[in-house]
Amino acid sequence: EKVLKRMREIKNELLQAQNPSELYLSSKTELQGLIGQLDEVSLEKNPCIREARRRAVIEVQTLITYIDL
């Protein structure tokens, strides 16, 4: 939940920025750090946690791809 919240904050900052190119590098670095945090999530045998992590990774990767474009 914390990762998704921060990812959404970054997305809003990028969309509202007057000059978003200044934010791209720092935002991309922070998003890659969020992916690292998601990699540390213990998936164990809980399919709900596994699915939530998968969705979060996809959302963060989508935003990274947007920045790259």
Score class of each variant (00 low, 15 high):
Thr62Glu: 15
Thr29Val: 13
Lys45Val: 08
Ile58Trp: 05
Glu9Arg: 03
Lys28Pro: 00
Glu30Trp: 00
Asp68Ser: 05
Asp39Met: 10
Leu63Glu: 04
Ile64Thr: 04
Asn19Leu: 08
Asn19Pro: 08
Glu9Cys: 01
Arg53Asn: 11
Gln16Phe: 05
Gly33Leu: 07
Cys48His: 11
Leu43Glu: 15
Ile49Asn: 07
Leu23His: 03
Ile64Trp: 00
Asn19Trp: 06
Leu31Lys: 00
Gly33Asn: 04
Glu40Arg: 11
Glu44Asp: 14
Glu13Val: 09
Arg53Gly: 12
Thr29Cys: 11
Ser27Val: 10
Leu23Asp: 08
Gly36Met: 10
Ser26His: 02
Ala52Glu: 11
Glu40Leu: 10
Gln32Lys: 03
Asn46Ile: 04
Val60Asp: 02
Ile64Asp: 10
Cys48Ala: 15
Arg53Tyr: 15
Ile64Lys: 01
Asn19Cys: 08
Val57Trp: 05
Leu43Trp: 13
Glu30Thr: 03
Asp68Arg: 02
Ile58Tyr: 14
Leu38Thr: 06
Gly33Thr: 10
Glu9Thr: 06
Thr29Gly: 09
Asp39Pro: 06
Arg8Leu: 12
Glu22Leu: 10
Val57Thr: 02
Ser42Pro: 14
Ser21Pro: 07
Arg54Glu: 15
Ala56Leu: 07
Gln37Trp: 04
Leu69Gly: 15
Ser21Phe: 12
Leu31Pro: 01
Arg50Ser: 14
Ser26Thr: 07
Lys28Gly: 02
Ser42Cys: 09
Val57Leu: 11
Ala56Ile: 05
Gly33Phe: 12
Leu15Trp: 04
Leu15Thr: 07
Leu34Met: 11
Cys48Pro: 09
Leu25Met: 10
Lys28Leu: 07
Lys11Gly: 02
Gln61Leu: 05
Leu38Lys: 00
Leu43Gly: 12
Val3Gly: 01
Gly36Gln: 08
Glu51Val: 10
Ile49Lys: 11
Cys48Tyr: 12
Glu22Val: 06
Glu51Lys: 04
Leu31Asn: 01
Leu23Gly: 03
Leu43Ala: 15
Ile49Glu: 15
Arg8Val: 09
Val57Ile: 13
Val41Asp: 14
Val60Pro: 03
Arg50His: 06
Ile58Cys: 14
Arg54Asn: 12
Lys11His: 14
Thr65Val: 04
Lys45Leu: 13
Glu13Ile: 11
Lys11Met: 07
Ile64Phe: 01
Val41Pro: 12
Val41Thr: 09
Asp39Ile: 04
Ile10Lys: 00
Asn12Phe: 05
Arg50Leu: 14
Glu59Pro: 00
Gln16Lys: 15
Ser21Ala: 14
Arg8Thr: 09
Val57Arg: 14
Asp68Asn: 13
Leu25Pro: 11
Asn12Leu: 11
Ala56Val: 08
Tyr24Lys: 12
Glu13His: 06
Pro20Cys: 08
Leu38Glu: 05
Glu9Met: 05
Leu25Phe: 03
Asp39Ser: 11
Tyr66Met: 09
Ala52Gly: 05
Ala56Phe: 05
Thr65Met: 10
Lys11Ser: 07
Glu9His: 04
Arg50Thr: 13
Lys11Ala: 08
Lys28Glu: 00
Leu43Met: 15
Cys48Ser: 13
Val60Tyr: 03
Ala52Cys: 07
Thr29Asn: 06
Gln61Ala: 04
Ile35Met: 10
Val41Gln: 14
Leu69Glu: 15
Gln16Gly: 13
Arg54Asp: 10
Leu25Ala: 10
Arg8Phe: 07
Ser27Tyr: 09
Ser27Leu: 12
Cys48Lys: 13
Ser27Phe: 11
Ser26Val: 05
Lys28Phe: 02
Thr62Ile: 04
Arg53Pro: 01
Thr29Ser: 11
Ile58Gly: 10
Arg55Val: 07
Thr65Glu: 14
Pro47Lys: 10
Glu59Arg: 03
Gln32Gly: 04
Gln32Pro: 03
Leu31Gln: 00
Glu51Pro: 02
Leu69Ala: 15
Asn46Trp: 03
Tyr66Ser: 09
Val60Lys: 00
Leu38Gln: 02
Leu38Phe: 04
Ser21Trp: 10
Leu15Met: 06
Glu22Trp: 03
Leu25Arg: 09
Pro20Gly: 06
Ile35Asn: 00
Leu31Thr: 01
Gly36Cys: 12
Gln61Asn: 14
Ser27His: 07
Glu13Thr: 06
Arg54Thr: 08
Leu31Trp: 00
Lys11Pro: 00
Leu69Gln: 07
Ile64Pro: 03
Ile64Glu: 07
Leu38Asn: 04
Arg50Trp: 10
Gln16Cys: 13
Thr29Arg: 14
Ile35Arg: 07
Arg50Asp: 14
Ser27Asn: 06
Glu22Met: 07
Leu23Ser: 02
Tyr24Asp: 03
Leu63Met: 08
Glu51Gly: 08
Lys45Ser: 13
Gly33Ile: 04
Glu44Ile: 04
Gln32Glu: 14
Lys11Cys: 08
Asn12Pro: 01
Pro20Leu: 05
Met7Ser: 12
Leu63Ile: 03
Glu13Cys: 08
Ala56Trp: 01
Leu31Asp: 00
Lys11Asn: 05
Leu38Tyr: 02
Thr65Ala: 12
Thr62Asp: 12
Leu63Gly: 01
Leu69Tyr: 05
Lys45Phe: 06
Thr62Gly: 13
Lys28Ser: 02
Gln61Thr: 05
Asn19Phe: 04
Ser27Gly: 05
Gln61Arg: 07
Leu38Ser: 03
Arg55Glu: 08
Ile49Pro: 09
Leu34Gly: 00
Ser42Asn: 09
Ile58Thr: 13
Glu30Gly: 00
Ser21Gly: 12
Thr65Arg: 14
Pro20Gln: 09
Leu25Cys: 10
Glu51His: 11
Val57Phe: 10
Ile49His: 06
Glu22Ser: 10
Glu22Asp: 11
Tyr66Arg: 07
Ser42Gly: 14
Gln16Asn: 14
Glu51Asp: 06
Ser26Asp: 13
Ser42Gln: 11
Tyr24Arg: 01
Lys45Glu: 15
Glu40Cys: 09
Glu40Tyr: 05
Leu38Gly: 02
Arg8Glu: 14
Val3Gln: 07
Gln16Ser: 11
Leu4Met: 03
Ser26Cys: 06
Gln37Met: 11
Gly36Arg: 15
Arg54Val: 05
Ile67Ser: 02
Ile67Trp: 06
Ile58Lys: 14
Cys48Phe: 15
Leu15Ser: 09
Gly33Ser: 13
Glu13Ala: 11
Leu31Gly: 00
Leu43Cys: 10
Gln61His: 02
Leu25Asp: 07
Arg8Lys: 10
Glu22Asn: 06
Val3Pro: 02
Ala17Asp: 05
Ala56Arg: 02
Glu30Met: 02
Arg8His: 13
Ser27Trp: 14
Thr62Val: 02
Val41Gly: 12
Pro47Met: 07
Asn19Thr: 06
Glu59His: 02
Glu22Ala: 11
Ile64Asn: 03
Gln61Lys: 09
Arg55Cys: 10
Ala17Val: 14
Tyr24Gln: 04
Thr62Asn: 15
Gly36Tyr: 04
Ile64Ala: 03
Val60Met: 11
Tyr24Thr: 01
Ile10Trp: 01
Leu34Ile: 05
Glu30Cys: 06
Glu51Leu: 05
Leu31Met: 01
Arg50Ile: 13
Ile10Gln: 01
Ile49Met: 11
Thr62Trp: 04
Asn12Glu: 15
Tyr66Phe: 09
Val60Arg: 00
Pro47Asp: 14
Glu44Pro: 09
Val57Gln: 11
Gly33Arg: 09
Lys45Cys: 13
Ala56Tyr: 02
Leu34Ala: 00
Leu34Trp: 01
Pro47Leu: 08
Gln37Pro: 05
Leu63Val: 05
Leu34Arg: 00
Asn46Gln: 10
Pro47Asn: 10
Lys45Pro: 15
Arg53Val: 15
Gly36His: 02
Asn46Met: 03
Asn46Ala: 08
Lys11Ile: 04
Gln16Asp: 06
Leu23Trp: 04
Ala52Trp: 06
Glu13Trp: 00
Ile10Leu: 03
Ser26Ala: 13
Tyr66Lys: 12
Cys48Val: 12
Val60His: 01
Glu30Tyr: 00
Leu15Ala: 11
Ile35Trp: 02
Gln32Met: 09
Lys11Val: 04
Glu40Met: 10
Lys28Gln: 03
Pro47Gly: 10
Glu13Pro: 01
Glu13Ser: 06
Arg8Gln: 09
Lys45Asp: 10
Asp39Leu: 08
Leu43Pro: 15
Leu69Cys: 04
Leu63Lys: 01
Ser27Lys: 15
Glu59Tyr: 01
Ser42Lys: 12
Arg53Thr: 14
Tyr24Asn: 02
Glu51Thr: 05
Asp39Thr: 12
Leu43Ile: 15
Val57Asp: 04
Lys45Tyr: 06
Glu40Pro: 12
Arg54Ala: 11
Ala52His: 07
Tyr24Trp: 10
Tyr24Val: 06
Leu15Asn: 15
